[in-house]
Design a protein around this nucleic acid. Structure first.
Lengths: 186, 186
DNA sequence: CGCTCGAACTTGATGCGTCAACAACGTGCG
DNA sequence: CGCACGTTGTTGACGCATCAAGTTCGAGCG
């Protein structure tokens, strides 16, 4: 049996945590996860795997929309002109421009939004929610909120709500740090 | 502007949403999310969306393995005979039997595991890690743990570690509850 | 001017996940 | 005994995401 889920039988290995992240030595000796860390990680896997699936399935059933499609429409619906540049929309939905382009293409075919080039501004394009698209989002919103409450929010005590917020922030920071600078010694 | 991300700018409006529903039945009037709830939800989106993507990308780069493929191999590697029935493997990896079957098929082609029918036991099949598969998992494990630490664990205070565990448990419970009984008032 | 560079998308090929059949196998009832 | 049924897995079609080009514009600079 190998330690492949990061489980640690040896507590001492996990005790000295924070310092060794980026040592001068190239080979860090794989600090396996402690009992508590492993439990937290497994719990987190549930959130990562099951929650999106559940939300997606429900959204699909109730509104014939992907969770991501819903996000796109939703973000647009909250904009002053129900309009946003593609890049901004990509940022707000945490998606790649490529993915967004595909999705927006499909939504455009379905008549839920429209694209338009901004003249004299490079290759910039805006996406604008149509009235039909607006109706769809508004109709889908209550179900979405209900699902979010049922699966996540309503099952949490206030302290865990606050913790979730901190955790999300930390995760985001860690990921963005890793993608922007691949090393940290410059 | 519509309340489609469940945000409430207007506290009074949040109480009586546009519930143009039919009966006087217990149609819940869409309790929109409070400021704190919304913040927690948005933070959670980061965990749901960015974290799996980051882990997947990294696993792909470093070991030419999907995060899910890694899980499959990893679970097998921790089994006494490095062997597990398909259904059990599906349960342990939180996957559908169908998904698992596809993935196992691919891994089999790559020579990382093998399948064998259990004679005299219905249609039962076991998946068994090959030596090559074992080597792959062992080689990939340190990178996996490092990623989990970097993106998640090492950025959390102990109290948040504990909270994450509670949250994951709660989410799982909520989702499983919803899938077993589809209604609540019969 | 014109040429190259970079920014802002778009497109196409490929691969994985899901859903709905389908197949293979014991089991138990009539 | 035999046949319908539930379990357990597999397969194929289809949709969506990703990755690697390609395209279209403005800007800088020589």
């Amino acid at each position: 049996m190998a330690k492949t889920t990061a489980g640690a039988k040896d507590p001492s290995a996990a005790a000295n945590a924070s310092a060794a992240s980026r040592s001068a030595a190239p080979v860090t000796e794989t600090r396996w996860l402690s009992r508590d860390e492993l439990a937290a990680w497994l719990a987190n896997s549930a959130i990562m795997i099951s929650l999106p699936a559940a939300l997606d399935a429900r959204m699909q059933r109730e509104a014939h929309l992907t969770f991501f499609e819903y996000m796109v429409l939703s973000v647009l619906s909250e904009e002053p002109e129900r309009t946003l540049r593609m890049s901004d929309l990509a940022t707000r939905t945490s998606a790649s421009l490529s993915r967004l382009s595909h999705v927006v293409g499909r939504l455009e075919v379905r008549g839920l939004l429209e694209r338009a080039r901004i003249p004299g501004a490079g290759r910039r394009t805006v996406a604008k929610l149509t009235e039909a698209g607006y109706q769809v989002v508004v109709a889908a919103a209550p179900g979405h909120v209900a699902a979010v409450r049922e699966y996540l929010i309503d099952g949490l005590e206030p302290r865990d709500l606050a913790a979730l917020r901190r955790i999300g922030t930390a995760v985001n920071a860690a990921i963005n740090r890793g993608s922007s600078d691949m090393d940290d010694s410059t």
